[in-house]
Design a protein around this nucleic acid. Sequence first.
DNA 1: AATCCAAATGGGAACGTTCCCAACAAACGG
DNA 2: CCGTTTGTTGGGAACGTTCCCATTTGGATT
Lengths: 337, 337
Amino acid sequence: MKRHQVTIIDIAKELNLSKSTVSRVLTGHANVNPATRQAVLELAEKWDYQRNMLAISLITKKTNTIGIIVPEFSGSYFPQAIIGAQEVAAKAGYNLIISQSNETYETEVANTKVMLANQVDGLLISVTKETRNFDHLGVFHRKGIPIVFFNRVCDDMEAPKVIVDDYDGAFRAVDHLIQRGRKRIAHLAGPTSLIISVKRLNGYKAALRKNNIEMDEELVISYDLDLDKVKIYVNHFLNLENPADAIFAFNDPTAIEAIQVIKKRGLKIPKDIAVVGFSDDYASGLIDPPLTTVAQPVKDIGKTAAQLLIDQINRDVSEWKSMIKVLKTELIIRKSS
Amino acid sequence: MKRHQVTIIDIAKELNLSKSTVSRVLTGHANVNPATRQAVLELAEKWDYQRNMLAISLITKKTNTIGIIVPEFSGSYFPQAIIGAQEVAAKAGYNLIISQSNETYETEVANTKVMLANQVDGLLISVTKETRNFDHLGVFHRKGIPIVFFNRVCDDMEAPKVIVDDYDGAFRAVDHLIQRGRKRIAHLAGPTSLIISVKRLNGYKAALRKNNIEMDEELVISYDLDLDKVKIYVNHFLNLENPADAIFAFNDPTAIEAIQVIKKRGLKIPKDIAVVGFSDDYASGLIDPPLTTVAQPVKDIGKTAAQLLIDQINRDVSEWKSMIKVLKTELIIRKSS
DNA sequence: AATCCAAATGGGAACGTTCCCAACAAACGG
DNA sequence: CCGTTTGTTGGGAACGTTCCCATTTGGATT
């Protein structure tokens, strides 16, 4: 039972003014009689007048809305990133429309269409593990709507990207394990479609190489991030003839799942096997044993991405188009290694 | 550098049609020549045409957008609830605009204004600990925009509410502690402004009464949910002449913080002191020792709230206006008690 | 052959606002 | 006293769509 919404025309009629004058008051323009201004503001207040952003946006071609598409919501990574983005966006007067693609390419494409239809001023996106074709994002370029990638980026698109130094983070994590005397370090890697998976894998390999350890193909598995399967892989690592004495997991949820599996098998961490994760999720410092992990400034990633996007929306900086912001990681050594 | 967006008029001109006909095709209306339809669809596809929801919403007075305002984003409670709401909303074709009020009344009021300006079709809200005046929500009623409360509800507003049985959950948690032989059970309660705080406190009192334990005022503290202060209160409970042998915390973040403080003091949980939380946050099962807690179906709360809201938007069911949905809690007993 | 009907299309108002341009009055300077 | 400025207001197009009400056309019915 929607009541008729109060419009500037209603106010204008009541006060025997034109909508132009009322509009001028409400938008804070100059050249309007103080008495008139007063009267308009009072009536607006009294009638709970709210500007209709739809109409305004239609005219100004600006919605002050930015879209954010993430592959999933579980874990603490993306929620944290969203919080960061939301903070920056709110401060700059932007609204956030969020949507998750459930790690599915089709859903991602559908989501971009929704964003387009809703006339977002810009888009923050972290792509799914399935995304290999980027035509759905090309549309944004063609329409001149800025995009900023974060975390899961697309290398051959011209757009700012916010990432951490995954290679370096992985390198230091694995090097740390080697310094602790581990020789058989397994890597439960992410899907090869993701650049971050490849970079972390490369960091892993480099650390082995630096320490003259030959890589054992059996100790490296790329998986699809389905946590239910972690058990299988961990068991694989442990059942090898020459079993693993450490696991470097693609991310913290994976590492945490691995720890559960290992504990259930009755093995001791880190005595029997060490575990290292990536991201420093909220739970990582609380779990028993506390997880050694490569911390990422997740909230800052969200903030930086949002800031970059807003800068792009406001000014018109085409030179930035492929700027890459690499944030620092930090190895947090806890009891699991 | 926004390029001119493709409109139905562009398509109409190109094909020598009127915008009416193009509109008919794009909205899937009947009575249009199959050949014409075909041509329009092809050109729309080729030109990356996207309907402008602003214009549509302006006419139809429906944005297919629902707003959600939460007091904060940290912890796993509200993110989980949002995930649930987002899922239901997406399925029903609604977008979600989220905003957080940072536990501040002013921000909450500002957020409601933004929601109003953006013409949301409905609002999901969990109020801040500061909110005592509900005029900013009354506007929604007056405008006929449905609201659904969840978790932090407002008792004297006519609107559906989704909550759990806080009284019962607290009762069972405390009763459980008593069964385990605890006599000096402290309650670190939430702010008295929140109804859930009061209900949990009442559950606590009732459990003591049932077991003929007299309540000790010194063992009950209402606090403002600032986790930094937990240390002070826990130490207070432990330094009493007759110290506490159990703590029932208002929520899991509080309980987890308490556990850290207790462990740092060198005390053993649950031997020296038991701890019970509320909500079953993600981290609760992982922490050492695993936390006994009253689990809430958080995601379902979000889903239920969203569903209730959408039902209200679609049909016009005024009888529901003050329906209260109470979901079940479950006491999850772990090692901390 | 005259009439009617349905299918296909076009025209234009409406949604609530902004913003440009014009209109008008009062005040001012010479 | 007249031209010019300044302050204040009004009128109307535009934004991109939907939707109601014509209008046109060709075929079917009588």
